[in-house]
Design a protein around this nucleic acid. Structure first.
Length: 431
RNA sequence: UCCUCGGUAGCUCAAUCGGCAGAGCGGGUGACUGUUAAUCACUAGGUUGCAGGUUCAAGUCCUGCCCGGGGAGCCA
């Protein structure tokens, strides 16, 4: 007897095969029961008949609790009324485990209940679809960099040098060395690596101890970062355009079935191709003021500001050249406008907002040292980082893309908490 | 940290001016040979988040606390 996956049913029409899975839904009608079986590859409808299975087994199957596990033998048949287009007539059913009453029912649930039951929620059609899209997205991210000459460079999780704001670091005891911190970015380490490898990227979890409480924030999230030697700001933006277009187009074409099941309209995503729109920070301020905002120069763009700007475009948009004082210390001072830095944030359309932050890096030793001091940081902790500017310093640039925010945009979700298997949020670290 | 909304059956919610605590789903029992969140009948199920207070009477009003949701700031 052939054991097969439900997704391969089209190759086994008319054959008797075995599938192993869980009952995700059940309906019965007298001497006939319909079981929806999920096997991890897909779902299908199994027909259980009293005449075939016998009175005793049939009456148990007819009342089997949802999420019970079973091994089903039967004949595969094309059937337009069945989800997936194929159906199996069971000849034998072995119950592996009769489930207790499953907490998650067929009707609606609230976020608190679902998040407390995330370990069970993850079985649902919707959540498995999102996890498959996540898998595809991450795979295309890696593939893009490998196709374009980047080397994977795993950055450390424990750090004593931080790239962003020191107040948002998670501190842990590190033996006799005192406090170490969970990484907020791998960028500084990538910068060290470009001198040996030219173009590098890293992909891993990052941790922010910000008391954020919005649909766009997680305490632990995954970020892909890239860094390239001899790349100026313009090259950096061209890379980002090409990269984002690649991962979006490849993910939506591979995952069309899943995205449609998530009721994602694919038309806006199909437009995500170079060139993206570009405006400067100063131009953004003008647009915002024309739209009734009273934002002052030197303030970072808020969520409402991002919404106004992204609503004007149907593709991602770069906002370039922010004031130096609102951005991180390592960004390169603008050669013509000393109060600005050579950086850009990339905002996703449809209200999704910032998915990338990137910049050309300060490659001048003295300017970098001054920036560290101006930001109130201790230059001694950044000794190794500063030293990179002493030995063959070159213009270089990089960026970081948030996996969950990007996935949330691609899937058309309302909240990033559904994009990661076990979300870590300010009031939630269980399960 | 601030603003805002909420907590009633296992789940999602309702309960008018303060006046008998309810429905759907899920559970149980039964009917039904093509169902698509199947349907139909019957049935069990409650410390209304916690602690005080006002009142003849509190799910409802007041005070404090606890726990969540949404948003702001910060950021990806």
């Amino acid at each position: 007897m052939i054991e097969c996956l439900i997704k391969d049913f089209s190759k086994h029409t008319g054959e008797e095969v075995v599938i192993k899975g869980w009952v995700s839904n059940r309906r019965s009608s007298g001497k006939l029961s319909f079981l929806i079986i999920r096997d991890g590859s897909s779902i299908c409808q199994v027909i259980a008949e009293r005449e075939v299975l016998g009175e005793e087994l049939y009456s148990e199957i007819k009342k089997i609790p949802l999420e019970s596990s079973m091994i089903v033998q039967g004949t595969v048949r094309e059937e337009s009324r069945s989800p997936g287009g194929y159906e199996m007539n069971a000849t034998k059913i072995e119950i592996v485990h009769k489930s207790e009453e499953f907490p998650i029912g067929k009707k609606e649930h609230g976020p608190d209940f679902l998040l407390n039951n995330r370990h069970l929620w993850l079985r649902s059609n919707r959540q498995t679809a999102i996890m498959r899209v996540r898998d595809a997205l991450v795979r295309h991210v890696r593939e893009y960099f490998h196709k374009n000459g980047f080397t994977l460079l795993d950055s450390p999780i424990f750090t004593t040098t931080c790239g962003e704001d020191t107040s948002s670091l998670f501190a842990v005891d590190y033996f006799d060395l005192g406090k170490a911190f969970l990484s907020q970015t791998g960028q500084l380490y990538l910068e060290a690596a470009i001198f040996g490898l030219g173009k590098v990227f890293c992909l891993g979890p990052t941790f922010r101890a910000e008391r954020s409480k919005t649909r766009r924030h997680l305490i632990e999230f995954w970020m892909v970062e890239a860094e390239a030697a001899f790349a100026d700001h313009d090259k950096n933006l061209a890379l980002q355009e090409d990269f984002v277009s690649y991962i979006v187009q490849n993910t939506i074409s591979e995952m069309e079935t899943e995205l449609i099941s998530l009721e994602r309209d694919l038309e806006p995503l199909k437009k995500v191709k170079p060139p993206f729109n570009r405006i400067t920070y100063d131009e953004a301020l003008e647009i915002l003021r024309k739209n009734g905002s009273d934002i002052q120069w030197g303030a970072d763009l808020g969520a409402d500001d991002e919404t106004i700007i992204t609503s004007l475009y149907d593709k991602p948009i770069f906002i370039e050249d922010y004031p130096k004082k609102v951005k991180a210390f390592y960004m390169k001072q603008h050669p013509e406008k000393p109060d600005y830095v050579k950086c850009a944030d990339l905002l996703a359309p449809e209200g999704y907002g910032e998915i990338i932050g990137g910049s050309q890096r300060e490659d001048d030793y003295d300017k970098l040292l001054q920036a560290i001091r101006d930001n109130g940081l201790d230059p001694e902790r950044y000794g190794w980082y500063l030293e990179l500017r002493k030995y063959g310093s070159v213009p270089h640039s990089g960026f970081g893309l948030g996996i969950e925010r990007t996935l949330s945009w691609i899937c058309g979700l309302k909240h990033v908490r559904e994009t990661i298997p076990f979300p870590r949020m300010i009031y939630r670290a269980y399960p």
